[in-house]
Nucleic acid binder design. Sequence first.
DNA 1: CATCATTGTTGACACTGTCAACATAAGGAG
DNA 2: CTCCTTATGTTGACAGTGTCAACAATGATG
Lengths: 240, 240
Amino acid sequence: MARQPRRPIDLKESCVQAAREVIAEQGVEGLSMRDVARRLGISHQAPYRHFESRDHLLAEIMRRCFADFAGHLDARLPGTDDRTDLAAMGDAYLDYAIAKPLEYRLMFGTPWPEPAQHAGLVSDAVHAFDILRNNLRRRHGKAAGMQARADLDALFIWSALHGMASISQSQAMDSLQLAPGVATAFRGYLMQKVGIALEVPVDPRPADCRPAPGSAGTGISRASARKPLPPRSISGSRAR
Amino acid sequence: MARQPRRPIDLKESCVQAAREVIAEQGVEGLSMRDVARRLGISHQAPYRHFESRDHLLAEIMRRCFADFAGHLDARLPGTDDRTDLAAMGDAYLDYAIAKPLEYRLMFGTPWPEPAQHAGLVSDAVHAFDILRNNLRRRHGKAAGMQARADLDALFIWSALHGMASISQSQAMDSLQLAPGVATAFRGYLMQKVGIALEVPVDPRPADCRPAPGSAGTGISRASARKPLPPRSISGSRAR
DNA sequence: CATCATTGTTGACACTGTCAACATAAGGAG
DNA sequence: CTCCTTATGTTGACAGTGTCAACAATGATG
């Protein structure tokens, strides 16, 4: 028979809480199992009764971050239509990235532990993405190929937002000697550009010709790789 | 008087080489001073004669990666005009990210060591950015405010490319159940969207009104943060 | 030659994740 | 009730890490 946990205070839960505190204070790299144990006043091995390894603890925390994040996206001020709603979603995304940089970095800037394992992690992360995708699917309708279009738009939006979020968080911006006002205008400018790009339809086919509709010729197009880089390619993975 | 280094084989150089191998094989996290020493058959403290700390070694490697990267961008097939050149640059950027994922992650996905220190790192990184920025400055001319416009465009392009590169490298794509063909079309689609966004001029002012020129209303716009997130904000830094 | 800075080695220290063995206690079976 | 199983927590080890301190060799310079 499965025995019920009768502990009043849930040590597993406490570990997660303590670990989140550490991460919020010092970032992922600062997280140590022993530190968690120390903060809770328990032996250094106690957390291992609840988490197989540091990676498993980390995965659980990442899962919760994704859940938080998805909740934050869901809690945006509802737009009056799909368009303003999309804008609100973009704002909510960037607000979160700014307000919780270390959590953001944990979700999107840290190599994931075990891909196949930690199924909960994956499904929670996908759920966050689906909030964005669902909006675009409503927008594009169900005609043939429109699922793909919605996915492509979702990936494009995500790229721009994530790119901006992670660039803003790196110290890079400080060193670039940007023209005055650029740093503060960046966010609004990017949102406008993305909005424009979404308005103008685009052929998701191989691309290569297709001038931009209403404009001379897009400028950036030709897809696919050429010139496969000199010799020494890179293999490797995040093993060990 | 400054003594000349008379060593035939430069141990400092060997350390860098060995460390780059480790990183290319196992990623940044796998880099260990002692491992470097072991590979070179020297004592575990020898590398410290040439690098103050692991972070200093890492900074040197990052610096070289940026130099490589900038060289790779410079070595793109020259475009016939600024537009096709910009496209070639985008392609070169993504080619590099794909060919050397671990180096790419090292440059753009790893918290930098000491910001102020390691001046060489910063200047080499800025140089890579300047390749992009210079193209856009030529494009925009020198009229008042156009410097800022060029910087904004550069940041926008960088965001999209970096966003795509880092999303593609995460295992996320595999889990999203994307519609068929989306994964392969992603790159070309994003390049087209970026091209379109660059064609259509945009007001870099605060944004908030300004409908997209030639279209009903951009959809994504309103900049700036609202709703500052519940309570628990995050402080912390990458200390120690 | 004597001096001295450069470079490399050896040995420690505190810290990490994790394995193994042990202690304790609580519930069910007899 | 006792006995046993199972969950939980503790103690002690081991190999690995970055880094400090003390020492040794070596070669150019006074």
